[in-house]
Amino acid sequence: MNETLQHIVKHSFMYGAVLSQPMIMPSYILHDLIEAKEFPRYGEHSERVQAIQKKLYDFNFYHDDIDGDFGILTEYAIKQFQRKNQLPTSGILDDDTVHMMIEVEMDQYLKKIEQLSEKIYPGLQSEDVRKTQEILQFFGYYHGHIDGIYGPLTTEAIQRVEAEHHISLVNVHLQQPLKKVHEKKKKEKQQLKQSTKTNESNADSQEFKKAEHTIPPSQPVATTQSRSTKIIQTAQLYIGTPYEWGGTTPNGFDCSGFLQFVYQTENIQIPRTVSEIWNFAEPISAPSIGDLVFFETYKPGPSHAGIYLGNGRFIHAGSSRGVEISDINLDYWQNRFLGAKRIIQ
């Protein structure tokens, strides 16, 4: 998983204390599950099952008593969660499902922070400050008492979030709110989608005319199309390769490690991280085969990318199933699509 997800796992607090907080889920248990690779199974009765039920309840998948009994209703809720997040619908808790729970919870808390950030300021004592502290504690940024007082520790925690995610959280006192940042990004996405249809045909014709006038007809040329074909052929050879955080080899890839490896097979050097690749590549109005498509997943800005295959499909190293082909028209990807770029070398 990404750095933020690792940060959450590493810095989550002991579940006993966290469970007593009304907004915070017991993620310490999830940390134990991921580390030990030992997950609750059907028929188990335990506090860790209770923790899973509480998460599924807040995700609006579980609607029964939070009693710690792993029965039919808990299994059904897990299946619904897996189906919603494009995981195998087995009803069995596994590494991918638990990681996805943390990621979904992370998204929820970031949205909640966005709302709360406009209501708090240094020196304030309120319920909104207390909720903000709880969320910051969940992410591992706040290390003080949950007292509802916006003091130095709360300020320090917010500044750490801003520095790590390159965002602004609190209005007036610490810069513009995250809400405005999100609205700006949404507006940019809408403008990009609107301009795509009108620019696509013009861009294609201009590229054709440019090639027609600059390349002598008799001269053999290795075209961009042939290079792109080789790139996607190479990429497809590794379908099924497992996801591995920091992975850059066929033993395991993360998303940017997969892109870098594939491009290196064509002697094309690209940066290591998604954000660096985004800045390195050239923007285009719409993707063609072999171009890169970028998504905003766990934090503002580009955080996931894949290689466009045409017909709305792209290949990427996903955290759940490793290297796979996905449909860019699915709601999950459409809602997170940032744009397409091309590697020019």
Rank of each mutant, 00 (worst) to 15 (best):
S168I: 09
I113C: 04
H304M: 13
S218G: 06
Y238P: 02
Y298S: 03
I149Y: 15
I149K: 02
G68N: 13
H143F: 07
A36C: 06
D65M: 08
A222I: 13
V274C: 11
E324W: 03
S126C: 14
S90T: 15
R41E: 10
R272S: 08
A340C: 08
Q80K: 07
W333P: 03
H63E: 08
A51Y: 13
E127Y: 14
Y263C: 11
K54G: 05
P271I: 09
K179M: 13
S275T: 09
I307T: 10
L259M: 13
R41Y: 07
M106L: 07
A211H: 14
S320N: 05
Q194E: 13
I270D: 06
Q233M: 12
T155L: 03
L93I: 12
D69M: 02
T234C: 05
N2W: 09
F139K: 00
G240V: 13
G290Q: 05
R83I: 11
I215N: 01
L87V: 02
L169K: 10
F139P: 07
E105Y: 05
A163I: 06
T196F: 10
I158C: 04
K84V: 09
C255N: 14
H63N: 12
L292N: 10
G16K: 13
P302D: 07
I66C: 08
D95F: 11
I328P: 04
Q53S: 05
Q125T: 15
V98I: 14
Y150P: 01
E44A: 11
A17M: 07
G257D: 11
K341L: 01
V323M: 06
Y28Q: 02
S320C: 01
E105K: 04
G322D: 03
N311V: 10
I325R: 01
A222N: 13
R41M: 04
V181M: 05
G301Y: 03
G91W: 08
L178H: 11
N199C: 07
Y332P: 01
T241W: 09
V9Y: 13
D95S: 08
F208Y: 11
L73K: 04
K119A: 07
I284Y: 10
G151W: 08
H99D: 05
F139L: 07
T265E: 12
M23L: 15
E296D: 06
K131E: 15
T4V: 14
A36N: 14
G306I: 01
T196R: 09
E212I: 00
S275R: 07
G322I: 01
Q269H: 14
H316E: 15
T273G: 03
Q86T: 03
K131T: 06
W278M: 06
F280H: 15
Y142E: 00
